[in-house]
Computed example of a mutant assay.
Amino acid sequence: MENLKYRVIYEYEFHRGTSAAETARRINDVYGDGVAKENTVRFWFQRFRSGNFDLQNKSRGRPETKVDNEELKAIVEADPSQTTSELAAGSGVSDKTILIHLKQIGKVK
């Protein structure tokens, strides 16, 4: 079952006044051991107590990259003697990020 479906149950049990431990036990009795962890239910109950009843997770994806591969390629082709540290400093990113992008544009093996 999807996490969202369990969260609906958490909210229902919260409004009933059931404890987090009892809610986790009930869910595990029905859907199998380990499906609902007490700490997870406590986390959701804490959110509900603060007035937040949004059952969706906040997006936690990777941040968008600050490096444009075409721009990086033009910089490297204009001055191939630059080090990755210099390129990183100029772009405001880490050396590792520059290396990843250099690999994407075929400038390193």
Results as ranks from 00 to 15, higher is better:
residue 75 I to Y: 11
residue 102 L to G: 03
residue 94 S to N: 03
residue 61 G to T: 13
residue 20 A to Y: 09
residue 24 A to E: 11
residue 87 L to K: 05
residue 17 G to W: 13
residue 83 T to M: 05
residue 57 N to E: 02
residue 101 H to L: 07
residue 84 T to H: 02
residue 14 F to V: 09
residue 5 K to W: 05
residue 84 T to D: 04
residue 106 G to P: 02
residue 89 A to Y: 05
residue 62 R to H: 14
residue 22 E to A: 12
residue 88 A to R: 05
residue 93 V to C: 08
residue 26 R to C: 10
residue 100 I to W: 06
residue 50 S to E: 07
residue 104 Q to I: 02
residue 55 L to W: 02
residue 40 T to S: 11
residue 108 V to L: 11
residue 70 E to Y: 06
residue 63 P to W: 08
residue 100 I to H: 09
residue 41 V to K: 07
residue 54 D to F: 10
residue 104 Q to T: 07
residue 103 K to W: 06
residue 66 K to D: 04
residue 94 S to C: 00
residue 7 R to C: 03
residue 27 I to F: 12
residue 47 R to L: 05
residue 67 V to P: 01
residue 100 I to A: 04
residue 98 I to H: 01
residue 80 P to T: 13
residue 55 L to P: 00
residue 74 A to H: 13
residue 34 G to W: 14
residue 52 N to V: 08
residue 68 D to M: 06
residue 57 N to L: 08
residue 38 E to V: 14
residue 96 K to M: 08
residue 56 Q to V: 13
residue 38 E to I: 12
residue 85 S to Y: 06
residue 3 N to V: 14
residue 84 T to S: 02
residue 21 A to P: 00
residue 6 Y to I: 15
residue 12 Y to W: 08
residue 90 G to I: 00
residue 2 E to D: 07
residue 66 K to H: 10
residue 97 T to L: 01
residue 14 F to C: 03
residue 23 T to G: 06
residue 72 L to P: 00
residue 70 E to G: 12
residue 28 N to W: 08
residue 77 E to P: 05
residue 71 E to Q: 15
residue 5 K to P: 00
residue 77 E to S: 04
residue 109 K to P: 02
residue 60 R to S: 05
residue 86 E to F: 02
residue 89 A to W: 03
residue 100 I to S: 03
residue 54 D to Q: 11
residue 92 G to K: 10
residue 76 V to D: 00
residue 26 R to G: 09
residue 76 V to S: 01
residue 81 S to A: 13
residue 82 Q to S: 06
residue 104 Q to K: 15
residue 82 Q to R: 15
